[in-house]
Every structure is written in structure tokens, then in C-alpha cells.
Amino acid sequence: MQKNYFDRVHRWGITWNIGALLMLLCVPVIVCVNLGVWPELKTLASVLSKLMLLYWVTAVIEVITYVPMLGAGGTYLSFVTGNITNLKLPCGLSAMENAKVRANTEEGEVISTIAIGVSAITTTVIIAVGVLAFSPVLPYITAESSAFRPAFEQVLPALFGALAASYFAKHWKLVPLPIIVGVIVLIFAPTMGVGTLMFVTIVAAVAGALIMHKKNWL
């Protein structure tokens, strides 16, 4: 039964994944056909050489890092809809935590998939409604002088602070090492992107957990 369900999820996931890929590639093609212009290959190649070096390498790391945590359905949904670290991953994990189910079980699989699906639809609706209905007013909300600006500047500390409080209490022994490593890395490389930094802190946390497990400290 277990193998069956996961096998089916992977089959659905791959089908939707390929559909999304084809659809995405159609976007620039339609834009070019519609405008009757095509990009200069030399310029495009120079831009892509920079972007791909950075993002295709990050993509490999992301796939390896997130797949074990998001579950099968959650993974396929998250990678198509994007905004994984700042939204889908914390959303899925917090749903599993609330429902008291474990990742890598069928129960965890369905709960995280439902949470990530709901989150994807909510985001899509908010962006669509925002662009179509509120685009004239939006700049005022995010403007320098807006009262809401400080709130939106601090979305990530607020989100991860709330998440940390519920998660850290249960696993407090694992906490100090990755934070200290992260802060030290940032002191020497302050502009490091969060994707790369995350890789470093995850390695630190997992290595710490392995050592503590071996020494029976957990």
C-alpha cells in the first residue's frame, strides 16, 4: 500500500512537472512571436552564463536539501510554484507539526501536500488580485513613508522567529551550533546569499546531530 501511494504521487508529479516546464518555455516564445522580435543571442548568452552558473548549481543543492523535507507531492508542487524557503517549506513543516505527523510517512505526505497546495493557491490568488485590482494603490502600501512598510520589511524575522520558538524548544540541543556557524560565516561574508548560507547551516546542524546521536546526547 505504502509503495503504491508514493509511486502514484511520483507519476502525477512528474506529469505535472513536465507540463509546467513546457508551459514555461512557451512564455518567452509567445512573447517573441507576439512582439515580432527575438533576443540577441550574444547578449542572452552572456546574461545566461552568469545566471546559470549561480542558479543551476543552487538548483542541485535545493533539490537535494528540500526533497527529504517536503514529501513527494509537496516537492513537485513547491518546485513548480516557487517561493520555497520563505513560504512553502515552513508552511508544510508547521502543518505537519500541528497535525502531529512525521515527515516521510503517508500521514506526513498528505498533510504537507494539502498545506503546500493551499499555500500555493492562496499566494496565486493574492498576487493575481493584487496585480489586477490593487496595482494603482499598492505602491502606497509599500512606499517609503507607508505605515505598513516596516511590517513587510520584517516578514522573514517574524516568520522564522515564530517557527523557531515552536521548533527549537523541542530540539534545543541542536540549536546553538548552526546559529553560531551562520553568524560567524556572515561576519566574514556579510553579503552571502541565503541559499548558500542555508546550505552551510544545514550541514552544521546535521553534522552536530550525527555527532550527538553517536555520543548518545540526544
Binding site: 536539501t65 522567529g161 521548533y167 530540539h171 548552526p178 542555508m198 547551516t201 550541514v203 546542524a205
Partner: peptide, 12 residues
Amino acid sequence: AAFIGIISAFIA
């Protein structure tokens, strides 16, 4: 631990 690693990056 992996999840704590992610949160730690944002806290750092």
C-alpha cells in the same frame, strides 16, 4: 536538524 539549519540561516 536540517530544518533547524534552515531556520538558523534566517536567524543568523
